[in-house]
Simulated scan of single mutants.
Amino acid sequence: MTTDGPAERALELDLDALRPGRTRIVLAAALEQPGVTFGDVGAVELEIDGFAQATLDAATEERTLLLAVVYRRGERWRLRAIGQGYPTGLAELATGYGVQLG
């Protein structure tokens, strides 16, 4: 993984390493700094090498952003860019997706 600047983040997914039966991965981002929103950050570029690219640029007061869903249809993996934002934190988003937080 590489990034070109201090504000860039990279994530690597190994779809072959998923447990059998897994068909969906939700990608989300949250801002830690108090008072900063995705409206302040500006456009979020989502790029998956050789697979897909999307620009998410409609955020205003959101502190957590649902970026995309990677899902399996038949034998192929697909990407759906979402760009849905929430004014709450990442914990609330995770709980909404059934993730148990300790």
Rank of each mutant, 00 (worst) to 15 (best):
V69R: 06
A28F: 12
L46G: 02
G39L: 07
G21F: 09
G21A: 11
G74Q: 07
G5Q: 00
L27S: 02
R63G: 10
G50W: 08
A29D: 07
R22D: 04
E32P: 04
A91H: 02
G35N: 02
A7S: 13
D16V: 12
G98P: 05
L56S: 03
A17T: 13
P20A: 11
D4Q: 13
P20G: 05
V26G: 01
D40I: 15
E8C: 12
A43E: 04
L31E: 04
Q100C: 04
G89A: 15
E75M: 10
A17C: 05
A81L: 10
V41D: 00
Y71L: 05
L13A: 02
A28N: 03
G5P: 01
L67R: 09
D49E: 15
V70E: 05
V26S: 03
Q100T: 14
Y97P: 00
L66G: 00
G39S: 03
Q33C: 03
G98H: 05
G21W: 04
L18E: 04
V41H: 02
V69A: 13
L11W: 07
T88Q: 15
V36Y: 00
G39R: 08
A68R: 00
A10V: 15
L66N: 01
G42A: 12
R72I: 10
D4P: 02
A54R: 11
L93I: 04
R24V: 14
G102K: 04
G39D: 05
G21P: 06
F51P: 00
T2S: 14
R80V: 09
A29N: 04
A52C: 13
L27I: 15
G96Y: 07
E61Y: 06
A94V: 08
P6E: 08
G83T: 07
E61I: 07
I48A: 14
L65C: 01
T60W: 01
A68I: 11
L15K: 02
R19Y: 09
D57H: 10
R9M: 08
V44I: 15
Q33N: 04
L79S: 02
T60K: 09
I82R: 04
P20Y: 06
T88L: 12
M1P: 01
R73A: 15
E62S: 09
F38L: 07
L11G: 12
G74P: 03
F51Q: 14
I48D: 02
V36P: 00
R24H: 12
A30D: 08
L101G: 03
L56F: 09
L67C: 02
P87K: 05
A58E: 10
R9Y: 11
A59W: 01
R73H: 14
R78A: 14
L27M: 05
A43M: 05
T2F: 12
L18V: 10
T64K: 00
L66H: 12
L101D: 03
A59K: 01
G74C: 05
Y71R: 09
G42L: 11
D57W: 06
Y86H: 12
Y86I: 13
F38A: 08
V41F: 11
T23V: 13
R22K: 08
P87G: 10
T88K: 11
T2Q: 12
F51M: 14
A29W: 10
T3N: 11
V44A: 02
G89K: 12
G5K: 04
